[in-house]
Design a protein around this nucleic acid. Sequence first.
DNA 1: CGGCTAAGGCTATTAGCCTTAGCTTTATGG
DNA 2: CCATAAAGCTAAGGCTAATAGCCTTAGCCG
Lengths: 189, 189
Amino acid sequence: MPRVGLTPDQVVGHALALIDEQGLDALTLAAVAARAGVATPSLYKHVSGGLAELRRLIAVRVTEELADRLAEAAVGRSGDDAVAAVLRAYHAYATEHPHRYTALPQAPQPDDDLTHAAARLVGVIIAVLREYGLDGAEAIHAARTVRSVAHGFASLSIGGGFQLAEDLATTQNRLITVLTTGLRTWPTP
Amino acid sequence: MPRVGLTPDQVVGHALALIDEQGLDALTLAAVAARAGVATPSLYKHVSGGLAELRRLIAVRVTEELADRLAEAAVGRSGDDAVAAVLRAYHAYATEHPHRYTALPQAPQPDDDLTHAAARLVGVIIAVLREYGLDGAEAIHAARTVRSVAHGFASLSIGGGFQLAEDLATTQNRLITVLTTGLRTWPTP
DNA sequence: CGGCTAAGGCTATTAGCCTTAGCTTTATGG
DNA sequence: CCATAAAGCTAAGGCTAATAGCCTTAGCCG
């Protein structure tokens, strides 16, 4: 029984590959173990919490990847341009890895790592909003608005929620315009 | 073994009660059967496709309930007022039945019934948009925008996506203002 | 009233999964 | 060179969904 030299990160990597290829329902410890070349119980040496912890780790990883993509998209842009780029990057990530994105909300309750990763993602958005003169509590409300729009569009899009024939890119353009207009004329009380 | 007199609708009802009380993961045929006072295999007499079909039926039912709620909220209102009411009703439904709402995107692929129910929901939104002078393809894009905002906010809200202490109702107010402003100044090309 | 059919229950079984327990081997550090 | 901890294994228990086959009830039709 030669050592495989597995690490928790590698286990998550195999799990993500599996999800990408066969969907979220195919995520079983048995399948991950087979892909890693290891017997199922051996996974507990690296992911002691079993399937629940694996799902948690997946959510953390996906959140980090998403935050990276948004940060990349925002760099070197400002204002409406940056917001548009962030929204497109968000949707692009979800479209490229639909099952992976669907795995995101499946985490039981948020733990420290997930909260940290989510905070980084929110940080990227808050940074983009700085050019609109939004800060403090209003920046939080605006960031929530951006996330709602981005997540809602991505989620419905990959979930088959938009069944009609109308062009999706056009919808995305309208959505971006609505959002940027809303941010520019932000309803400060 | 007295007859229980089960119907598919009743099975879905038991399943929804179970989901509401114990979450989506607790949805198993065994648990539904126990609640219905029946052995597990007996469920196949009413829901021949097993767990997959049950999930499909649940998605249809929830979509119908949601469409009902939105229609109720919209009646007797118009313009921004109607849009605001629809958004609040959407969020209220998701908040009242968080697990049920989470069950919505779990349907495998959309079938005829689900498409029909979704069409009714979209119909309610399109009707609300008529007062903005939007029709044809632009009405579709606008309806998608409304759904994206409503779903995104509801989904993040019940999924624990908004962890900071800022008031959620305020975020909702800002979101509604951004959306209605966007609809009034709709970017027709 | 008698009997037939179909529907709605049941038990038993199989296959697959997660998880724990306990053993064995490998690698590594002193 | 050996001790120990890490990393693998097999075995077993308890879930689950799903299928097969049987039995009983309800209701209808002659």
